[in-house]
């Protein structure tokens, strides 16, 4: 969800042009009036009695819209391969505003950084994927923090494998890094030897493998 602020002008027949000074691209909204007789003569009656913002002045109304950028979209790799869960055949979904190519290029930039300022690569990667980080799509939408979105959990892990591979890490290191992180935030007896739920490991591996097979050489 995002807010869209639209200059809003109520405009009706018989009145002079409203003063639109200072308003860029005002939206004219058709508004129906029901004429009725009163002591002072003929005056407009508003069909919708609840509408309180009536006048010649332009007002900005705030609309809640579902932006396309926030809608889930299927993950498709640069070579056109759609990503699906091999176990269920279900398509892997990501938020519409995410650019997979952009994320991979970010990872490649981090790899370049490793040669000159190695620690910076690690710290930036952590800040991308930490709780509420730029690539924590379960909590970060196009406009900032969002309520927890469980459907992007698999994509979060997949993206970590993809970006981590682009950043120059081996799969083993990525799994250990993710596992150590998980052991601190949510230790469970059912986690595997890396300290990860099997499902997280599966998607990190998939992201890593797809970078090698479908992304490298297709950007």
């Amino acid at each position: 969800m995002s807010d869209l602020v639209v200059p809003f002008v109520i405009h009706w027949d018989g009145e002079p042009e409203p003063d639109l000074t200072g308003i860029d691209n005002p939206v004219r909204v058709p508004f129906q009036f029901v004429p009725f007789e009163s002591k002072g003569g003929r005056q407009p009656k508003i069909a919708n009695e609840d509408a309180t913002r009536i006048g010649r002045e332009a007002v900005a109304l705030r609309f809640q819209t579902v932006a396309n950028a926030d809608r889930a979209t299927q993950v498709v790799l640069p070579d056109g391969t759609p990503v699906v869960d091999p176990a269920t055949g279900r398509a892997l979904m990501m938020p519409g505003f995410v650019s997979l190519e952009g994320n991979v290029l970010t990872g490649l930039a981090l790899q370049g950084m490793a040669a000159t300022a190695p620690a910076t690569r690690e710290v930036i990667l952590y800040f991308f994927f930490r709780q509420g980080g730029l690539m924590d799509y379960q909590r970060t939408g196009v406009d900032g923090p969002i309520p927890y979105e469980a459907n992007y959990r698999d994509f979060g892990n997949y993206n970590f494998g993809l970006v981590g591979a682009a950043a120059g890490y081996s799969l083993q290191f990525l799994l250990v890094m993710a596992g150590r992180y998980n052991r601190k935030v949510n230790p469970k007896s059912s986690d595997n030897s890396f300290g990860l739920p099997d499902r997280n490991e599966k998607w990190i591996r998939a992201g890593y493998a797809d970078f090698q097979a479908h992304v490298l050489g297709h950007l």
Binding site: A117, P118, A119, T120, R121, E122, V123, L125, Y126, R130, Y169, S170, F173, V176, M177, A178, R180, Y181, N182, R183, K184, V185
Partner: peptide, 21 residues
Amino acid sequence: CCMLAPFSSPFFGIVVFSLGG
């Protein structure tokens, strides 16, 4: 982390993510 930059390696990522968690 920045001070340790010259000495870092992928192992450093494990340290960062452990501390981060």
